[in-house]
Structure formats: C-alpha cells, structure tokens
C-alpha cells in the first residue's frame, strides 16, 4: 500500500513500491495525459512535477516519493503560471501530433516557477531533454517567451 499526494488529493493505492509513477498515473489513476515514450528518461514525455520540480515519472518508483506533492498535466487548475504557459502555447501553436506536449508543458511551467524570465539558453537547458519528433522546438521556445511577456520572436 502506497500513499501519494496526486494533484492535491491524498490517495492510498494497492501497488508495489517499485512501480514507476508513470504507470500508477496512467494505469491505476486513469490520468492518461502523462505519456510513455521511452521508459528510460530519454524523451521527457512522462514529465510531471514533484514538489514543483520536473521529474521523469517513467523512472521514479512510487515508494521513493513519500509525501512530496505530485502535479500532473491534469492538475494545473490553480496555477497562474500554468495558465500563462497554456496561453503562450495557444498563441504560438507548437502542437502537432501533441504526444510530447504535456511533458514539454510541465517542464516549461517548472522552469517559470524557478526563474521568472529565463533566457534562451536557460530555456534550452530546461527543455533540451525533451524529444518532439514534430520538431516544434522553436515554437515551444517562443511560446515560453510569450508566457513571460516577451514579444521578440526568433
């Protein structure tokens, strides 16, 4: 039995300690917005927040989480920074197939929690571990810039 704080709700789940958070979210909780892409932390599609920091849920055993707060793409309702990011996403349209986008968005929100106005290099550092096979990286960077109030495009 594992107790987790997911999207500000405490849940008690009958799962083994070594089960990665990704599969608890998707297969036990039905929170399918978080995606599986590689299973080894190489693509970023499974990124969620753990106490506000971006983590790869495919490689994070739930037994190691304790009482840290887990936020997924479905749990952004009360986060004003998340809203700014989503608005930036709507304006710059970096979504194509969409599969990597929840992970990219979670990474972008975590970045803005840490840094109010990240530079291009800081954005690259924070998101360069995320694979977008539709190659929308330039638009993603521009969407983050919109979210922080910058008007200059690349």
């Amino acid at each position: 039995m594992v107790e987790l704080n997911i999207n500000n709700k405490i849940v008690r789940l009958d799962v083994s300690d070594d089960m990665p958070l990704l599969w608890v979210l998707r297969d036990v909780m039905g929170l399918t917005g978080t995606k599986y892409g590689c299973g080894i932390g190489e693509c970023g599609a499974c990124t969620v927040h753990l106490d506000g920091k971006p983590v790869r849920s495919c490689s994070l055993p739930v037994g190691s989480i304790g009482n840290q707060s887990i936020i997924t793409i479905e749990g952004l309702d009360n986060d004003p920074i998340a809203q700014k990011i989503l608005d930036g996403w709507v304006e710059k349209q970096p979504t194509q197939c969409g599969y990597c986008q929840p992970g990219q968005i979670m990474a972008a929100i975590a970045l803005l929690h840490e840094k109010e106005k990240p530079s291009k290099e800081e954005i690259n550092r924070a998101l360069s571990g995320h694979v977008c096979r539709c190659g929308m990286y330039q638009r993603i960077r521009n969407a983050i810039k919109v979210a922080v109030g910058s008007t200059e495009d690349e």
Binding site: R26, G30, L31, T32, G33, T34, K35, Y36, T72, I73, E74, L86, W89, V90, Q93, T95, G98, Y99, Q101, P102, I105
Partner: peptide
Amino acid sequence: QPRVDTSEKIKGKAIYATDIH
C-alpha cells in the same frame, strides 16, 4: 487559424490509442 485540436492536446485530454477508458 489556430489548430482545432490545440486545447485538448495541451491539457492532456487528447485521446491516443492507449488512453481509452
């Protein structure tokens, strides 16, 4: 025009084959 599938895709609500309930 903005994509008609933007909203569901950026909120994690778009349904892919293994998201079926």
